[in-house]
């Protein structure tokens, strides 16, 4: 088909050249939509969140409670990753919920879809834009917090060393063991796996929110349904085990809970973040498996979203 349109040069057009060919799938178009979404989100001043984040991390780093050096570092890590998680969820739901309904309301959608843009690419562009924004925000937060953690780690190591040296009867090996334990709670590559897990969860949350917004009538509806899915996604596994232990493997529990389990995503799996941050080593295979699962979620949700969106009339 595109052949036909390129050979149509019967009339001289304004620029003296014929219209362009439109490939049936174009990463370039998706990237254009994604970066435009990114610009939109950035210019909505979302990144001011980073200032709040920096203040929280620095404040927690200087909190003087009853901590050992390790505990202090752990608190900084937990607070930072907690804040990063919350940011990514809120952003994934709220920003995604806003995009489609707003494009529709402002009729910007007409102008985009009346260009040679397949609807799948439009959805992928929006998904990509939100994920790009989340990725950059997470990386910025990671950089900020790594800086704070690094400084606090150096302080903690120096303190621990001085403390042990003051008691002359510690061996060098003992001092090294202690310092290693402090350093274990400091800056490490493992923290990047935690960041990746947060990103993966945000990918799943963004894609189901986008799916909701393809049939939702407003942003508010999308946000409400999105939050409900988010909560149930964490809760249903527990509910299943609770019900089956309380009621036995009854038919009732099965009839009610099985569909819930099948329809809603299992978001609890992503809670690995807390233990990775706690210093639990994580195998690359586990990370790869989580990645595969998340990408599958995103792909399936986008496809179902496309199924609803493809013949939607405006």
């Amino acid at each position: 088909m595109s052949e036909t349109s390129t050979t149509h040069s019967g009339q001289p057009s304004a620029g003296g050249r014929g219209p362009l060919r439109a490939p049936s799938f174009s990463l370039g178009r998706i990237w254009t939509l994604a970066t435009s979404t990114f610009t939109q989100l950035v210019r909505m001043k979302t990144f001011y969140f980073l200032i709040v984040f920096a203040l929280v991390v620095v404040a927690v780093g200087n909190l003087d409670l009853l901590y050992t050096a390790e505990q202090k570092l752990r608190v900084i890590k937990n607070t930072a990753f907690g804040a990063m998680s919350v940011f990514s969820w809120l952003f994934a739901i709220a920003a995604t919920a806003m995009l489609l309904p707003r494009d529709l309301e402002d009729r910007t959608l007409y102008t985009i879809l009346s260009k040679p843009v397949p609807r799948l690419e439009y959805l992928l562009g929006k998904l990509g834009g939100v994920m790009l924004t989340i990725a950059i925000a997470l990386l910025a937060m990671q950089a900020l917090f790594t800086g704070v953690l690094w400084v606090q780690e150096k302080i903690a190591l120096a303190d621990a060393y001085a403390d042990m040296k003051a008691h002359s009867n510690f061996t060098e090996a003992e001092i090294q063991t202690r310092l290693r334990m402090v350093a274990e709670q400091g800056v490490s590559w493992g923290l990047l796996s935690a960041l990746w897990a947060i990103f993966l969860k945000a990918l799943v949350v963004t894609s189901f929110t986008l799916l909701i917004s393809t049939f939702a009538s407003s942003s508010l509806f999308t946000i409400i349904v999105g939050v409900i899915v988010f909560i149930i996604g964490h809760f249903h596994k527990m509910a299943v085990s609770y019900w089956s232990s309380a009621l036995g493997e009854g038919a009732l529990a099965k009839v009610f809970l099985k569909p819930v389990e099948l329809i809603f995503p299992d978001l609890r799996l992503f809670n690995i973040v807390e233990n990775i941050v706690g210093g639990q080593p994580v195998a690359l295979t586990a990370l790869a498996e989580m990645t595969g699962l998340s990408v599958l979620y995103a792909a399936v949700y986008t496809m179902i979203g496309l199924y609803l969106f493809i013949d939607k009339e405006f």
């Binding site: 349109s5 219209p19 439109a22 210019r43 009729r107 007409y110 009346s114 040679p116």
Partner: peptide, 20 residues
């Protein structure tokens, strides 16, 4: 969608991305 290659469309009272 390829038919749109040849089309330029101006909707009534258009709104584009206000941030651009």
């Amino acid at each position: 969608f390829r038919s749109r290659n040849a089309i330029g469309f101006l909707p009534e009272n258009p709104y584009f991305y206000r941030h651009l």
